[in-house]
Structures are given as C-alpha cells and as structure tokens.
C-alpha cells in the first residue's frame, strides 16, 4: 500500500516535471486520435449512405405459371431458413394479385384487359434484403440455393450488388488502413517524445537501479503517467469530434457518430499503444 501510494505520487511528480514536453505529447496524441476517430466516423457514414441507397434492394423470384400453394410455401420456407443473407421482408403475390397490380399500373392496360381470356401472369415472391456485407457477398450463393424447378426466372440487380460490395469493402479497407497507419504513427511518436521526457529522470532511474528498485517498481510511475496522458488525450479527442459532429449535423441530416463499441475499442487500442510505447521508451534506460 505504501509502495503504491509512493508510485502514484511519483507519477504525478513526473507529470509536473514533464509538463512542457507533456503538452507536446498530449497535443500530438489529440491530433492523431482525432484523425483516427474522424476516419472511423467517415467510414460509418459511407456505410450508412450505402445502406440508404440499398434500402429497397430486392430479389424477385418469378414462379412457373401453375405453381401451387404448397410449392410456394416450400419456397418461402427455404428463403426464411437460409443462412446466407439477411431477409427483411418476403412478399408473395399470386397470379391474380399480379394481374390486378398490372392492370392498375396503366389506363391503356385497364382498357384492353377484358380482351384477355385467361391470366397470363405467374405468381411471384419478392424478397427484400437487409443491406450488409454478408448479404451482398452471398447473394449469388443464395440465388443458386433457392433456385428450383418451380421457379422460372430470378431477377436481381447483379451489377448494383457487386458495385455496392466494392464500395463498402474499399471504404472499410481505406478507413481501417489509414487508422492502422495513424496508430503506428502514434506508437512511434509516443516512443520518441516519451523517451525525451525520460531523459530528465535518467539519473533517478539509474539511482533506483543502484538502490535495488525492481523493474516493475521503477517503471510503474511512468506507466501511470502515460495512462493519464492517454486518457486525457482520448477524452479531448472525443470532445473535439463530438463538437465537429454537432456542427456537421446542422448542415446535413442523418449523420451518424461513433458507435459505443467503436469508442471502447479505440480507447483500448490507444491505451495499449501508449503502454507499449512507454515500455519501449523506458526499456532504453535499463542496462540489462
């Protein structure tokens, strides 16, 4: 308990001694973390825009003309039970319903419709798909799985599906690639600036080694110090991004912020990067 108290006290003494360099350290961290969080938010919004564009994404199954209700039920069950895509809604129209919709679609057709001696239209199943990467990636597999001899044609916007997938995947690659790059930059920058701050206590570390300080004992105040900087930088970065978000939402609707899970992951990552960077920086000051 005494040791812990002393280590915490030492951490705050270090913060006070390093206050000038700590300012640069925290400022650089804020810039890098803010960029990362902004990239994460940008990716969220690209995915959101794609979702909005694809909110009426459907696969139309045109059944054979004389398909009975049993066969239709079987098809619906196979669609519902699939584990390839996320289905939002299934709409079944029998032949009569389709004819009614067809007739109501135009005045001309309404006039010539009595000339037909029988209904030429087949029943259909319309599958509304939830837009997500899994659904788009698996759409071809889904179609070949549901296809059977009761279905005459399957219509879906194949080109649109693959384009959406490409945009979604590349947006994620670009965002996470840049985030990884900035986190590596954060790590390198942290090591170097923290090392500079440690030069002022180099002699203290040497003396602690001489008087029998264990590595854990010597390092702990510096780890505590870096945790304070990391938490401070992260909180300020989130604040900046939130402020920016509020500003953007005044100009554009439907902008989404970060998800709580993302904030948590980003925080954990920042925390570990700073600890690893601190460990690397202090390591240079130990003889063996």
């Amino acid at each position: 308990m005494n040791k812990l108290f002393y280590l915490i006290k030492s951490a705050f003494v270090n913060i006070y001694h390093h206050r000038r360099i700590a300012f640069s350290l925290v400022l650089s961290l804020i810039i890098l973390i803010s960029i990362n969080l902004f990239l994460l938010m940008a990716n969220n919004n690209i995915q959101n825009i794609l979702k909005a564009f694809n909110k009426d994404l459907r696969v139309e199954l045109i059944l054979k003309k004389d398909t009975g209700s049993n066969a239709i039920s079987k098809n619906i069950k196979s669609i519902k039970d699939n584990n390839l895509i996320s289905v939002e809604e299934i709409v079944v129209n029998d032949a009569a319903e389709n004819l009614k919709n067809f007739v109501n679609s135009s005045k001309v057709i309404e006039k010539i419709y009595p000339l037909l001696d029988k209904n030429p239209l087949p029943p259909t199943i319309s599958v509304k798909i939830k837009f997500n990467k899994r659904s788009i990636q698996n759409i071809d597999k889904f179609i070949s799985r549901v296809n059977n001899d009761t279905i005459s044609t399957i219509i879906y916007p194949e080109e649109w599906f693959s384009r959406s997938l490409r945009i979604s995947v590349w947006s994620e690659y670009a965002a996470y690639g840049l985030i990884a790059l900035f986190f590596i930059l954060t790590y390198i920058l942290w090591i170097h600036i923290f090392k500079v701050s440690l030069f002022s206590v180099k002699k203290e570390i040497e003396i602690m080694e001489i008087v029998g300080g264990t590595k854990t004992y010597i390092k702990t105040p510096f780890f505590l110090e870096s945790i304070v900087y990391a938490v401070l930088s992260f909180v300020i970065s989130i604040g900046i991004l939130r402020y920016l978000y509020v500003g953007i939402t005044k100009l554009f609707d439907n902008i989404i912020f970060l998800y709580p899970k993302q904030v948590l992951y980003a925080f954990v990552l920042t925390f570990f990067i700073t600890l690893l960077g601190t460990e690397k920086a202090i390591g240079k000051f130990f003889k063996k």
């Binding site: 080694e209 001489i210 008087v211 029998g212 854990t216 063996k288």
Partner: peptide, 14 residues
Amino acid sequence: SYNKRAKLRQKMGV
C-alpha cells in the same frame, strides 16, 4: 533475472 538481482542489491549499499 533483473528483479532477483534488484532484490539482492537491496541488501547492499553503494
């Protein structure tokens, strides 16, 4: 290990 050496150093003054 470093820490074991540190513990032994605590028995010495330099």
